[in-house]
Write a protein that binds this DNA or RNA. Structure first.
Length: 361
RNA sequence: UGGGGCGUCGACAAAUGGUAAGUCAACGGUCUUUGACGCCGUCAUUCGGAGGUUCGAAUCCUCCCGCCCCAG
């Protein structure tokens, strides 16, 4: 975007450094910027973190004020509840481990918010994500953020061509350190110091407590803790407390550390040694492709969780949105409910949700 | 109540006369736009109890308490 114009761009502003800098940067470049913040949740007074606490909304508003562009707040609380929160609870009931942040991008930010942006007459919706959007021979491709340490493309795997046509990531080429410097240069001093956001925005305490409150004690799936051979080692108060690879909080006595190997919707939680966590083969559901769907088989790099480097794998298209993934080397704790994202080099090919893991290692 | 053995942190387990390792768990912190993992740190002034020997004992002696095994 090197042609300054009066083109209108809506910037999704969370109140953090990244999206604030993105907004000001676009404004400086001459765009007709409108800042928008989503209200996704009603926070308690004691809320210590979140994507859109009253303080965050206020921070975003101040940035807009200082730099002279309008700022609106859209209330998407109901939508957020119906999509992200619902999915979060459903996921735990199935014995899976949800990734609400990726889900929020898919179901709220780049669908509902994007629609709002268009209604405001914007050509693009900009966000502060560290990812790159590149147009190449008629396709819009998604690349990892240049700053690999902050790369967030994993969370954006579900973007489609149609969505990408109206989306832009002004920070994709920049390192985080540069963004903080820019924040200072733009006079956003307090924001420049603001710590990176972290943890699920709509939960303040423990996840287990949240699930228990929402689902009700009756709906929790209790069951037995077992070892790999099925022998019972103990009991637990609900499968929502466990995730594959987990070590803490199992309450089991043993000489070696024990990890959760699998969580079953019928209540069984299988545990075992770390080595048993390594698996090669799994299946993905709800597969989506960014630029073009692959046919049949392909060699890719697969990333099965955030903060994890993509590893070589073969994928096999099964149809009906399903894909079989075979890692070259066994990987630790492949977890149903998490997103599996496929890359080739820097490019995000697409991804889906981990559905099941084959027992062989 | 004939013989033998054992009793060290919530669990396992070293140190057998020189001033309480380690592992698991737990807790705290760090990392992180998900959950985990990882990493760092904390965690027995005390060794079933009471006496005694010794410069000095969890380690030796005596008695008591509690377990376990072999016999019967």
């Amino acid at each position: 975007m090197n042609s300054p114009s009066k083109e209108r761009i809506v910037v999704a502003m969370s109140g953090g450094v990244d999206s604030s800098v993105a907004a000001v940067l676009l404004k400086e470049q001459g765009y007709d910027v409108i800042g928008i913040s989503m209200r996704l949740w009603t926070y308690d007074r004691e809320a210590t973190h979140g994507c859109c606490t009253p303080e965050d909304l206020d921070d975003a508003r101040k940035v807009a004020q200082i730099h002279g562009f309008p700022h609106y707040i859209v209330d998407l609380e109901k939508d957020f509840e119906k999509t992200v929160v619902d999915n979060f609870l459903k996921s735990y009931r199935m014995g899976e481990t949800p990734n609400p942040c990726a889900r929020c991008n898919q179901d709220v930010k780049f669908s509902i918010l994007l629609k709002k942006a268009k209604e405001l007459g914007a050509k693009y919706l900009a966000t502060g994500h560290y990812a790159r959007r590149v147009e190449e021979n008629g396709k819009i491709r998604l690349y990892r953020g240049k700053d690999h340490g902050k790369d967030q493309s994993y969370f954006l795997f579900a973007l489609t061509q149609e969505e990408l046509a109206s989306v832009t990531f002004p920070l994709g080429e920049l390192p985080k350190s540069e963004v903080r410097k820019m924040a200072e240069a733009y006079g956003l001093l307090s924001l420049a110091q603001k710590p990176d956001s972290q943890e699920i925005c709509f939960i303040q305490g423990s996840y287990a407590d949240f699930v228990e409150q929402r689902l009700g004690k009756e709906a929790l799936i209790k069951g037995k803790m077992t070892d790999e051979s099925g022998d019972i080692l103990g009991e637990h108060d609900g499968i929502h407390q466990f995730t594959v690879g987990q070590r803490k909080g199992l309450g089991l006595q043993s000489l070696e550390p024990k990890y959760v190997l699998a969580v079953h919707p019928d209540g069984r939680v299988v545990t075992g040694p770390n080595e048993s966590l390594f698996k090669r083969v799994f299946e993905v559901r709800e597969m989506t492709w960014v630029a073009e769907p692959l046919e049949q088989k392909a060699s890719v790099l697969a990333q099965i969780r955030s903060r994890f480097s993509p590893k070589p794998a073969e994928i096999e298209i099964l149809g009906d949105g399903r894909v079989k993934v075979i890692f070259q080397e066994p990987q630790r704790a492949i977890t149903p409910g998490q997103a599996a994202v496929f890359f080739q080099g820097e490019e995000v090919l697409g991804g889906g949700w981990i559905d099941s893991v084959q027992d062989q290692s």
